[in-house]
Amino acid sequence: MYGAPCWVSLSTRDLPAAEEFYHAVLGWEWRVGKLGEQYRFASVNGVPVAGVSAVEAMGQTAVAWTPFFAVCSADETVARSQERGGTTAVGPISFPPGRAALLADRDGAVFGIWEGELVSGWEEWRRAAPVFVRLHTRHAFEAAIFYGEVLGWESAESGCCEVDYENEEVVLRSQGDVVARIHSGAVEAAPDPAIRPRWQIHFAVADVPACVRAARAHGGSAEYTGEGTEAAVLTDPDGARFFVSPRPAASPRPAA
């Protein structure tokens, strides 16, 4: 699973408001962990699924959702990113039981890396809060080369991710699951940050219309994407955007 998304984290200016909003919209429960009062862990049925940090605790980073990718070595990953034109915003710094860094690719899209034991097991995390991430970037193929070299996609080591090209998108799979997509079309210097290069977080939910209603009722906004599905883009009260889409039906198991 090295190179795959392993965690998602939100930076916000108002932790209590974020807790209330995401509890109402996604049903998350909250607790304080080893990282202190400025970081909250969200859980589903007792399984940690996401983190929320106060902006002050993360070096005044922008209000946004950020995906974190599992790596063998944070130091080596940061070095590979810098060698290929990426930048480092934070770290690597220690967060026992691991180390983390916040980076940006050559087009400015922000992502995180994590070295160490996962907060919850990868498969358990995927089941508790089905999520995939999509990079909206200037050129999907060039971005795939950057991330492939930095995160070790398609390497010969056991547990690494596989990359395919489908319908003009780069598709990343881990253990057969689609965990990320890279899509061309972002405008690097666009005045609207919603169309600049960025990573988007997509949560699979049981009831998209219910999430839309809850977001609007608790100080956020929501609109359907118009992509021929029930998917919607939601914005929390602090301005962080994320996507919700229908949870796929479980695939039937073959008869014995």
Rank of each mutant, 00 (worst) to 15 (best):
G176M: 01
S73G: 09
V71Q: 07
Y165E: 13
A24K: 02
G121K: 14
A217S: 06
G239L: 01
D164L: 08
R106T: 13
A140E: 11
S43R: 03
C6Y: 05
N167P: 01
V32Q: 14
T235D: 03
I182A: 07
P209F: 08
A210I: 06
E142L: 13
E227H: 09
P193Y: 06
E115P: 08
T225H: 03
A255T: 10
V44R: 07
W153R: 03
E124I: 10
S94F: 14
P193A: 00
W122L: 15
E162F: 05
R127M: 09
A249V: 07
E124L: 05
D236K: 06
E230D: 14
T66K: 02
P248F: 12
A79V: 10
A144G: 06
E115A: 12
F146R: 12
V233F: 02
Y39R: 01
A240N: 05
D238T: 02
G220P: 07
R253C: 10
D177M: 12
R84H: 06
T137H: 02
A129C: 10
E76K: 12
S120A: 14
R31H: 07
H202R: 04
R127G: 00
E149Y: 09
R181C: 04
S94H: 07
I195W: 04
H136G: 12
F243M: 10
E20M: 06
G85K: 03
G85A: 00
R80H: 00
R40K: 15
F69L: 10
S184W: 05
E166S: 05
V131M: 07
L103K: 12
W30H: 13
Y165H: 12
T12F: 06
V163K: 12
Y22S: 08
G220E: 01
P254V: 02
Q82R: 10
A128Q: 07
A4Q: 12
H136W: 15
E29N: 11
A255F: 08
W199T: 05
V244C: 01
R173E: 09
H183A: 00
R80E: 13
A210S: 09
A62W: 02
A186L: 08
V131H: 10
T61F: 07
A240V: 04
D177V: 10
G176C: 04
L103N: 02
E19Y: 11
G91D: 01
T229Q: 05
A189N: 07
S251A: 13
N45I: 04
E157L: 08
S155Q: 13
P96W: 09
V179F: 00
G152I: 00
F141W: 07
P248V: 01
D75N: 14
L151W: 11
A144S: 15
A255K: 02
D192Q: 03
A79T: 14
E168P: 05
T61P: 00
G219P: 04
E124T: 15
A74Q: 08
L234E: 03
V133T: 15
D107Y: 14
G226I: 09
S245W: 11
A89T: 01
V171K: 08
